[in-house]
């Protein structure tokens, strides 16, 4: 390690990993604040960032809890789990990059998230892919947990959610997670349909359930590949 000079590819991976890591870590403030305002205490909020450590699922869990309270617990857990399923695909993609070894894989599993996988797969050489994964994952892990704590303490001080507009901030946070995924017609169609389904079901079902049923839109559209690239649908 000491004897070998870093290649230009590895240095590029290091730079983009740190840049993405720092930018992403700052979201932790909003997560921490919103989590405490959804009813969790500071410790529970930090536990989520330390152990769950996957932003979409964390936001989903507190989003459902904020609207449905503890009674919506099963729906909150299921929402978080469904949003976490994409990490299975990330892990499969990362396994050959990470290589063998129990501890190395265990650590890699915890750091397998959108950003670390994105930076890694953007690199051109295998060594740069490894550097990109670890640097991004570690930078975000440290930063995200620090900013979660800061945000949780702020949220704890703030008190009433709606008076400060933080309920709108939660919606804006979800929109920020969704935005980069809306490039294709198929994802746009699913997004609109899922939002409509969730709205239509809100008066009928207990809080939390409309979101889960709306996920069924993905099953239908994905299963039949509606609005897909080849379909040419309007």
């Amino acid at each position: 390690m000491m004897a070998t000079q870093r290649t230009p590819e590895e240095r590029a991976a290091l730079r983009s990993g740190l840049a993405v890591g720092l930018a992403t870590a700052v979201y932790g403030i909003s997560f921490g604040a919103l989590a405490t305002l959804s009813g969790l205490d500071v410790w529970q909020t930090c536990f989520l960032s330390l152990v769950m450590f996957t932003g979409g699922s964390q936001f989903a869990l507190i989003g459902v809890l904020a609207s449905g309270g503890l009674a919506a617990g099963p729906a909150a857990i299921t929402s978080a789990a469904l949003l976490g399923t994409r990490n299975v695909f990330y892990s499969i993609r990362m396994a050959p990059v990470i290589g063998p070894g129990f501890w190395r894989r265990a650590a890699a599993a915890q750091l397998t998230i959108d950003e670390s996988v994105a930076v890694s797969t953007a690199q051109t050489t295998p060594s740069a892919q490894r550097v990109g994964f670890w640097v991004t994952g570690l930078a975000i892990y440290l930063g995200w947990n620090l900013t979660t704590l800061v945000g949780a303490l702020i949220g704890d001080l703030l008190g009433d959610v709606s008076a400060y507009g933080l309920d709108a901030a939660a919606a804006a946070a979800f929109l920020g997670l969704l935005w980069p995924r809306l490039k294709e017609r198929q994802t746009q169609a699913v997004a609109v349909a899922a939002a409509v389904v969730a709205m239509l079901l809100t008066p009928v079902l207990v809080p939390g359930l409309p979101v889960l049923v709306a996920a069924g839109v993905a099953l239908v559209v994905g299963g039949f590949n509606l609005f897909g690239a080849k379909g040419g649908h309007a």
């Binding site: 989003g63 609207s67 198929q186 994802t187 699913v190 969730a198 809100t202 008066p203 809080p207 993905a218």
Partner: peptide, 26 residues
């Protein structure tokens, strides 16, 4: 494909609920 779209569907539904929902009311 379904796994990818599942993420989109859940996020979009959460945006809807968080923007317009108050308990079981819109």
């Amino acid at each position: 494909r379904i796994a990818n779209l599942m993420t989109v569907a859940l996020l979009a539904a959460l945006i809807g609920v968080q923007t317009l929902g108050v308990g079981q009311a819109i």
